[in-house]
Nucleic acid binder design. Structure first.
Length: 105
DNA sequence: AACATGACCATTA
DNA sequence: GTAATGGCCATGT
Protein backbone atom coordinates (compact mmCIF):
# COMPACT_ATOMS: atom_id res chain seq x y z
CA UNK A 1 0.00 0.00 0.00
CA UNK A 2 1.37 3.34 -0.98
CA UNK A 3 -0.82 5.39 1.28
CA UNK A 4 -2.59 4.91 4.58
CA UNK A 5 -5.96 6.73 4.46
CA UNK A 6 -7.09 4.65 7.40
CA UNK A 7 -4.46 6.07 9.70
CA UNK A 8 -6.75 8.87 10.84
CA UNK A 9 -9.60 6.45 11.32
CA UNK A 10 -7.46 4.26 13.55
CA UNK A 11 -6.50 7.29 15.58
CA UNK A 12 -10.13 8.14 16.25
CA UNK A 13 -11.13 4.61 17.20
CA UNK A 14 -8.19 4.31 19.53
CA UNK A 15 -9.42 7.41 21.32
CA UNK A 16 -12.75 5.85 22.25
CA UNK A 17 -12.81 5.42 26.04
CA UNK A 18 -13.81 2.17 27.69
CA UNK A 19 -17.53 1.79 28.31
CA UNK A 20 -18.37 4.00 25.35
CA UNK A 21 -19.18 3.32 21.72
CA UNK A 22 -19.09 5.28 18.47
CA UNK A 23 -20.93 4.96 15.19
CA UNK A 24 -19.30 4.66 11.78
CA UNK A 25 -20.72 8.02 10.79
CA UNK A 26 -19.30 9.58 13.93
CA UNK A 27 -15.85 8.17 13.28
CA UNK A 28 -15.98 9.17 9.66
CA UNK A 29 -16.90 12.73 10.55
CA UNK A 30 -14.18 12.98 13.19
CA UNK A 31 -11.70 11.56 10.71
CA UNK A 32 -12.63 14.27 8.24
CA UNK A 33 -14.76 12.10 5.96
CA UNK A 34 -18.39 12.99 6.70
CA UNK A 35 -19.87 10.68 4.09
CA UNK A 36 -17.37 7.88 4.12
CA UNK A 37 -18.84 5.77 6.88
CA UNK A 38 -18.46 2.76 4.62
CA UNK A 39 -14.74 3.24 4.46
CA UNK A 40 -14.58 3.34 8.23
CA UNK A 41 -16.04 -0.12 8.48
CA UNK A 42 -13.77 -1.29 5.71
CA UNK A 43 -10.79 0.23 7.47
CA UNK A 44 -11.52 -1.62 10.68
CA UNK A 45 -12.03 -4.84 8.79
CA UNK A 46 -8.79 -4.33 6.91
CA UNK A 47 -6.88 -3.48 10.07
CA UNK A 48 -7.26 -6.79 11.88
CA UNK A 49 -3.58 -6.77 12.68
CA UNK A 50 -3.38 -3.53 14.57
CA UNK A 51 -4.32 -3.07 18.17
CA UNK A 52 -7.54 -1.07 17.96
CA UNK A 53 -10.87 -1.35 19.86
CA UNK A 54 -12.87 -2.01 16.68
CA UNK A 55 -15.52 -3.63 18.87
CA UNK A 56 -16.54 -0.21 20.15
CA UNK A 57 -17.62 0.82 16.69
CA UNK A 58 -21.22 0.05 15.79
CA UNK A 59 -23.69 1.22 13.17
CA UNK A 60 -26.06 4.18 13.45
CA UNK A 61 -28.76 1.90 14.87
CA UNK A 62 -26.60 1.10 17.84
CA UNK A 63 -26.47 -2.46 16.61
CA UNK A 64 -23.60 -4.68 15.65
CA UNK A 65 -23.20 -4.87 11.90
CA UNK A 66 -23.68 -8.12 10.07
CA UNK A 67 -20.42 -9.51 8.80
CA UNK A 68 -19.41 -12.36 6.56
CA UNK A 69 -18.71 -14.28 9.73
CA UNK A 70 -21.77 -14.15 12.05
CA UNK A 71 -19.67 -15.56 14.87
CA UNK A 72 -18.05 -12.17 15.23
CA UNK A 73 -21.35 -10.66 16.35
CA UNK A 74 -21.36 -12.77 19.46
CA UNK A 75 -17.69 -12.10 19.99
CA UNK A 76 -18.07 -8.34 19.69
CA UNK A 77 -21.09 -8.29 21.95
CA UNK A 78 -19.17 -10.27 24.53
CA UNK A 79 -16.32 -7.75 24.45
CA UNK A 80 -18.72 -4.82 24.81
CA UNK A 81 -20.54 -6.42 27.71
CA UNK A 82 -17.17 -7.02 29.33
CA UNK A 83 -16.50 -3.28 29.07
CA UNK A 84 -19.73 -2.42 30.85
CA UNK A 85 -21.94 -1.74 27.85
CA UNK A 86 -25.50 -3.01 28.14
CA UNK A 87 -27.69 -4.32 25.35
CA UNK A 88 -31.47 -3.98 25.23
CA UNK A 89 -33.98 -6.68 24.41
CA UNK A 90 -33.43 -5.96 20.75
CA UNK A 91 -29.71 -6.62 21.02
CA UNK A 92 -29.17 -2.91 20.60
CA UNK A 93 -27.10 -0.42 22.58
CA UNK A 94 -28.68 2.67 24.12
CA UNK A 95 -26.90 5.30 22.08
CA UNK A 96 -28.18 8.05 24.35
CA UNK A 97 -26.36 6.39 27.15
CA UNK A 98 -23.23 4.81 25.69
CA UNK A 99 -22.55 6.85 22.58
CA UNK A 100 -19.15 8.50 22.64
CA UNK A 101 -19.43 12.28 22.70
CA UNK A 102 -16.27 12.63 20.63
CA UNK A 103 -14.10 13.80 23.51
CA UNK A 104 -11.18 11.94 24.97
CA UNK A 105 -12.77 12.17 28.36
C1' DA B 1 -10.08 -0.13 -17.22
C1' DA B 2 -14.57 -2.60 -15.73
C1' DC B 3 -17.21 -5.19 -12.40
C1' DA B 4 -18.43 -7.03 -8.00
C1' DT B 5 -18.18 -7.03 -2.96
C1' DG B 6 -17.94 -4.92 1.56
C1' DA B 7 -18.05 -3.83 9.47
C1' DC B 8 -22.52 1.99 6.32
C1' DC B 9 -25.50 6.54 6.45
C1' DA B 10 -28.99 9.87 5.13
C1' DT B 11 -33.07 10.91 2.69
C1' DT B 12 -37.49 9.97 0.82
C1' DA B 13 -41.98 7.58 0.56
C1' DG C 1 -41.70 0.44 11.46
C1' DT C 2 -39.82 -1.18 6.38
C1' DA C 3 -38.11 -0.46 1.42
C1' DA C 4 -35.73 1.77 -2.08
C1' DT C 5 -32.11 5.10 -3.79
C1' DG C 6 -27.84 7.78 -3.93
C1' DG C 7 -23.31 8.51 -2.24
C1' DC C 8 -18.51 7.34 -0.99
C1' DC C 9 -14.02 4.59 -1.41
C1' DA C 10 -10.68 0.24 -1.19
C1' DT C 11 -9.54 -4.38 -2.78
C1' DG C 12 -9.48 -8.42 -5.82
C1' DT C 13 -10.33 -10.64 -10.20
Amino acid sequence: MTRQPYQNIYSIVKQIPVGKIATYGQIARLAGMPNHARQVGYALAASGDINIPWQRVVNASGEISKRKNPDIENYQRMLLEAEGIKFDLNNRINLKRFLWNGSSD
